[in-house]
Design a protein around this nucleic acid. Structure first.
Lengths: 231, 231, 231, 231
DNA sequence: AATGAATGAGCTTTCATTCAT
DNA sequence: AATGAATGAAAGCTCATTCAT
């Protein structure tokens, strides 16, 4: 299953000891990094302990000194990726002056992450079958990150009133679908600008705010300006 | 799309010879049905050829007379499920008098299908790792089904102008996310009415049409009437 | 554990197809024979499936077509050995004209078996930890074989009255201990005659019958005569 | 034999430093006690060094400072148990006024020990495969303990003349078999009185002495009296 | 058209033992 | 005197696939 021979198994992880790190901790970290790396190329079933330990440059038995089994390390990898995606989105949206701008920047950040980690994106989705709880946790954490900002924006009228959680899930879903279709499937470096613009028009309508700033036209205009196109 | 295959999913593999069906074709059909059945309970890796052939009542060797391998039959099962979901959605939307109503009915149909086939839903998602091409085909066929109707609705102004394909993907994504979150995760019999209403408010904004009929308020009103609540 | 390198693993079992035996049955029999053979040299834990299948000349996977696991085949081997020992004892005692003579011949038969299968003797005792039920079954079957004859002999006064089962267990125990001490430990070809005679004196007293024939002196006399010694 | 080691078997490894005991000796003792404890619950193969060192509260590596391997410590544990059983039997028989009474008390003591240490009983028998020499040593020491008393009793006519060693082995065997059958298998608190009496009738005959005191009837009478039954 | 016995590579996991610190 | 991280061989077992019948 999966694409087992697209790339050869990476032989070793470069072991750069982190400062103040004990021997045991370093080995654990090496294993975690190796697992992430192996899961880039192989799916859960094909990502064997043998491949992981080989990539980490340790003996097979060593694995069980740090993890109780395959699912255990998988869960940790998922948790780490979750942290990374959320970080990428939050950082991208930082400094936005409106909810809509925050969405635009956040989506752009998410797509950038998707492009930079096309295989890790696969890992997250795989969790649905390997570790449902890890998957739930992933989506819920992202949705929760949306909750308060959307609630606040609803209070100011920037976003149409409603249940912030349902809106959060809807926005998240659109981003994921567009990312899957126009980045992962097309193995593209980015969502084509016209698709992004079109998507933002839809997102704008989903938010349904009343302020001028948030209208479809205004957004398209802003974006074009940013790209240096003429309005 | 005609009404293909109106038989309900068989609970067990009962071999009722179809008229004019040769022996070989019947065996092939038995295997396909058995695979579908087994994949309801087991995921791809646990659904062994042995389980499938046992369920079909044939010897293991027979399997390779009709399918080139495990992935082969999986692809065929996915294709069949795809046919069924699309059929369920199309049938549900039949007779709608507006695009918005068609969406509402279509989503309801999709949720009903999700509720009735919670495990089959999992099968489709699993295709992402087992057979990426099957998965693409699945989503693309659904999206294509949206294309013409949305294009037409844009022409009449019922839906805001734009790229019908991107809107199709966005709508599909929202439905899937809500179905996953409120049916599959909650193991619920249906999406709670208030969630459905809230989602429809968002969908309505996504369509962004100009006709009165399509406004949020109008839709909520219609729905309440249907439920016998006072407006 | 155990003496792992006394003898090399036997490479193959000579496969003499038994008449009217189907392919599957023959493979099963080959595995059973190979297991018995391997268990002669190695103890339960060291008698790996790999060694067994190699000795049988089949692939490892084939093993699981016929046995559910290691314990399964072990139980069958124990059961077969049990059948063999009881057969050896019964055959040996056949034709005895008194209970005491039957005992003498039976013990001699048991010792002969012990001598011919010193390692199989070990296998039986190993069952105590590997498969307690198999072990119980083994001893109980032997004890049961004693029951009726002893009961009958008690009725005729040939053996002192009492509980035949407790006497059966006591006789069995003495035989086993003497066999262990003077055959297995000494790797001897037989229990030394003077030990055997001494043991028979004790056995004679244990039976405690009243008939002249059964007295210690009479037995020793008979035995000496048989050996051609002068009385 | 003096009264060595009157401390009860420790339920847990509590490290009470013994007077004048150096640190190294204490660690060694802790390991030995931990091994005994672990072997009560697990059999040889499942009693891992990890479990033993954990129970002893020392690091795994420390084990090899005191023992050359797993078999080494096992042998020492067996030797200690051997000391304990013999001690239990000797103590029980102390004060007997005849050989027969000594047997009766000795058997009772052995059964009591068996009942109190059902798992340790298993440990001894396991030695047969783990460490044949330890096992031989065990039985030989017990048999030797019988030797002199039986020899003396034969001299006085209390026991029928013969080879004391063969009689010793026979008696030992009967005790072990009855203990296994009616205590270990039945998980009973004691050998049922009627079984014990019946066994003593057999033992009495095995000893085959001439003095009145030793007759079956006399023994049964004594026993009944002890139990307060009327004769 | 069908059988089903046989394959063998590959998996996860355990554990006695070593050795640098 | 003690540590505990690391080892690596070996185990039992599964399963997609083949092929002689």
């Amino acid at each position: 299953m999966g694409p087992p021979d697209r790339r050869p198994t990476p032989d070793r992880t470069v072991d750069v000891p982190v400062r103040n790190e004990k021997k045991g901790e370093r080995t654990r970290r090496k294993l975690l990094e190796a697992a992430e790396q192996v899961l880039v190329t192989y799916d859960y079933h094909d990502a064997s302990i043998a491949k992981i330990t080989e990539a980490a440059g340790v003996a097979q038995g060593t694995f069980y000194l740090y993890f109780s089994g395959k699912k255990d390390i998988f869960d940790e990898v998922v948790a780490e990726l979750n942290r990374k995606v959320r970080h990428a989105m939050t950082e991208a949206a930082r400094g936005a002056t409106s909810r809509l701008e925050a969405e635009r920047l956040g989506f752009a950040g998410f797509f950038r992450f998707t492009r930079e980690h096309p295989a890790l994106y696969r890992v997250i989705r795989q969790a649905e079958f390997v570790s449902p709880s890890a998957l739930r946790n992933h989506y819920e954490k992202i949705a929760e990150g949306y909750f308060t900002p959307l609630q606040d924006a609803m209070a100011t009228g920037e976003v149409a009133p409603g249940d912030p959680m349902i809106l959060a899930w809807s926005l998240m879903a659109v981003g994921e679908a567009i990312g899957m279709r126009w980045i992962v499937w097309d193995e593209a470096k980015e969502v084509p600008p016209e698709v992004f613009d079109e998507m933002m028009k839809i997102i704008t309508r989903m938010l349904g705010g009343s302020s001028t700033e948030g209208t479809t036209e205004a957004v398209v205009e802003q974006t074009k300006r940013r790209r240096g196109e003429k309005v």
